[in-house]
Amino acid sequence: MKDMNMDIAPEKKSYIDLNVVQKKMSARILLNKIVNYLFLLSTLFGLIVLVILLYRVVADSIGWLNIDFLTNKLSTSPDRAGIVGAIIGTVWLMIIVGPVTMVLGIGTAIYLEEYAKKGRFHSFIQTNITNLAGVPSIVFGLLGLTIFVRVFGFGSSIIAGGLTMSLLVLPIVVVSAQEAIRSVPQFLREASYGMGATKWQTIKNVVLPSALPGVLTGMILALSRAIGETAPLVVIGIPALLIPIPGSLFDSFTVLPMQIYYWTIDSVLVDEYAHLAAATILVLLTVLFVMNSVAIIIRNKFQKRY
């Protein structure tokens, strides 16, 4: 190890001048402090905008959001216009999106996590789902317009809108259901197999119940996305002034975001429409707030049980 001795240079020359280091130190620390506050400010920027946005919506809807507004049908006259049709339309939409995405989403997730062999085909479906999640919602609208409205001949009906919206939010349900299924510990499955249960019995009686909270959370998030989504429905074709209340899956319909859209763009013609739009936004945000709170409660309640 003689060469190691040679490695150590005998020179005592010093490069770091402590006085210089000290002099620069206070500036560096000050800069760090300033930047700390700038970053905090930047973080708060988004929240400030959020507060302004909410304030605007609430301020604009005061005096407009009341029982009449919630129970009246649409009207060109701002004083008599209400959103009962849009509320019922939104409920109808959920009646389709809920069951369809639940069956498709959970089924796909079970297939991917429990049955499919991890290989090319598995990663193909997985990649496909990831890619679908990134497709702009308006492209789903065109798919719905071409397939459901035109080819299947559903027209601009609840079923066409509902199926389109289901495909749009499907990736959300699949991914969250997959995560939930994956987090079910292996020993629970083994316990079930150990008693002679079959694979499907194990999935049905052990895996799915344990994964339920995660699946539900994903479902709620998917539904709240569907409730707020506008673009695909614009493409499918929702009439601006639809007075009759839909009564079946094949009726045309309108939903809360569509009503916001039409009132917003028409607010240049009739000033009061901006207030109607704001009041509808408040209703929509309240619904979303409640749904998300439920999702958070479910998630927190069932988190980390194992």
Binding site: S224, I227, G228, I260, T264, A274, A277, L285, L288
Partner: peptide, 13 residues
């Protein structure tokens, strides 16, 4: 989580 339509309203009005 805020729907884009709400942002549209905010931008426009």
């Amino acid at each position: 989580g805020i729907p884009t339509i709400v942002y549209g309203f905010f931008a426009f009005t």
